[in-house]
Design a protein around this nucleic acid. Structure first.
Lengths: 338, 338
DNA sequence: GCCTACGATGTGAACGCTCGCCACGTGGCG
DNA sequence: CGCCACGTGGCGAGCGTTCACATCGTAGGC
């Protein structure tokens, strides 16, 4: 207490400036009800001492931390990561700080522990970027005393949880429709892991669109989002006979699939049309550039924060899904005649 | 105070359990020096009331927040993102929570504001994932009263800042050496943006390795990390005449480059050998699978936290760089004879 | 059988801040 | 010329914890 490298406090500033700490506090927040002279003097001392407000003391008395917790998938996958950045950025714009916890696999115990941790740290709300079915379930089980927004193409099954998502089913329909409209009567589907809600929903969209056109749905092939799984499936399909077009549940899988095609001398889009999903950063660089579905992560991120803020402040919120768009490039074309 | 949805506090628990708040506190931390009977009773009440410790009050009195700030690039680029996840995960393992701020472009004002914000929130240290030259500079300018670890292939120019990085220069040498050892006498380089330290360092490694083999360095081509820039350069190079091999500063650029090649009917690795950098998730899925350099993000993340923790606790730390490895796949082969 | 020591618990203060309220002085108004 | 109002500032309390210390009772040592 005698020497110490302790950070200066309100009282230190007050002492040096010759006013009460109350006045200093007023200068810091708003600066209202303080004469210009005192105010300038105090500001001077603050700069001189390098004073920085202590937000934890402040949070203690106001009981508002202005922070939110974000739980995200640890995999460097394009979608989840872009969403994370968008959410954080929107939070900061709203004056909130994001505490983030990434997890490579959402073990119930770990998720529960993380929720608890967030609560103890006093977050005002939690965002769960929950593409995996398992994470979604776990998150819903945790009794949340807090507003929770789950970014997931699923259903809200808990009163405290608001679900918000990009309408990926629509995205899948757009992709499928594009192929149909190009003239393909045969639109296959290489699905993503059904352990992910995204995988389930994209599959559903493809089915629905085919039905709308009274087209039969070929047998579905299931990958696990990895390019390798798609490559293997691609090889098998080359041997079994290729459809005239295929909607693949992710760009990365599309890439692996195409590799199998090229090894067999099959050309894209001449021999087979392909539409992917994600509009990954590499999608325009593939040979040929991938026609794919783009999700609007920035929009999702900011809408998500809007919803969370609304919940925190007890407002009614609109959580109608965001809408994706089709990005047409060169990997899908009209089928060859005959 | 009469009704209120206020969270129960230590005192509430104490009252119900019929003990002093001090005893409850003891039960929560360690539980030492408390008789089993009281302890169980208190634990019961805690569960019953759904009591959760208030970390902000705790932080106020202990003046330790057990949190760190992380500043990262907002771009969903593979490297930075993987690093972020690794750092956060290592932090959590060490009992710390990560506050993260992403920024798409490191404007000095914004970075400074973010630093200040972190300080006000009482973080015990800051990690800057700073691939861009500009971010690195800004971060160094901010007078940090805190331990700062900068993940950046640069030099520490500020006393308070510890720089740590993956030895990308070595990575670039590994890539170049591989090509030389395959028998290529002509190893070109398609560099990344020189606005990024990574870009500068990879270029330097290529030069150094060539010099070590007494090989001449062909004129460097400069991309900007985008696949599109590489595609354009590729087209020009096809027209001007291709080298027998090329080291490309990122996998994404390699992909764009290959697209230009394929459009012109050039084959890889038959006509030209290519080595990329990053081992991006799509690298093994490209046709042909990319030989590339893999950085050990997990290691970097955990070492980075080790270093930061060391600094926080005043220990001496080893910040020798992490070492990348070459991943050999199919995009580089021996040159054709003649 | 008395003193010591230790195990189990309680008390008071402090962390750095904000909030509600009160005190002082000056100016405008009746 | 007195009153009220308002602009300016100070004081006290309290947010939920932990820490240092005090207290109390009882078991163990001589």
């Amino acid at each position: 207490m005698s020497s110490g490298a302790r950070r200066p406090s309100l009282k230190d500033v007050a002492r040096v400036a010759g006013v009460s700490y109350q006045t200093v506090s007023r200068v810091i927040n708003g600066g209202d009800r303080v004469s210009v002279a005192t105010r300038d003097r105090v500001l001077g001392v603050i700069a001189e001492l390098g004073y920085r407000r202590n937000d934890v003391a402040r949070a203690l008395v106001t009981s508002r931390t202005r922070s939110i917790g974000v739980i995200a998938d640890a995999s460097p996958k394009f979608g989840p990561v872009s969403t994370l950045a968008a959410v954080e950025s929107a939070a900061r714009d709203a004056g909130y700080t994001a505490l983030v916890a990434t997890m490579s696999y959402p073990e119930p115990a770990v998720v529960a522990r993380t929720f608890q941790d967030f609560v103890e740290r006093g977050v005002e709300g939690i965002v769960v970027i929950a593409p995996r079915v398992s994470l979604a379930h776990v998150a819903q089980e945790v009794t949340a005393s807090l507003p929770v927004v789950m970014l997931s193409p699923g259903e809200a099954s808990q009163p405290g949880i608001t679900v918000f998502y990009e309408d990926q089913e629509l995205g899948a329909r757009l992709a499928t429709r594009h192929l149909v409209e190009l003239g393909h009567r045969e639109v296959a589907h290489l699905a993503g892991s059904q352990d992910w809600l995204d995988g389930q929903v994209r599959l559903r969209g493809w089915q629905a669109e085919l039905r709308a056109h009274q087209l039969a749905a070929p047998a579905v092939r299931y990958g696990d989002w990895t390019g390798e799984s798609a490559y293997l499936i691609g090889r098998r399909m080359v041997a079994d006979g290729l459809p005239s077009s295929i909607f693949i549940a992710s760009d990365l899988m599309a890439l692996g699939f195409i590799r199998a095609l090229y090894e067999a001398g099959v050309r894209v889009p001449d021999d087979i049309s392909i539409v992917g999903f994600d509009d990954n950063e590499f999608a325009p660089q593939v040979y040929p550039p991938l026609t794919t579905v783009r999700q609007s992560f920035a929009t999702v991120g900011s809408r998500c924060m809007e919803i969370l803020l609304g919940r925190i402040e007890g407002r009614e919120v609109d959580n109608s899904p965001a809408v994706p768009e089709l990005v047409i490039r060169d990997s899908a074309a009209a089928p060859r005649l005959g």
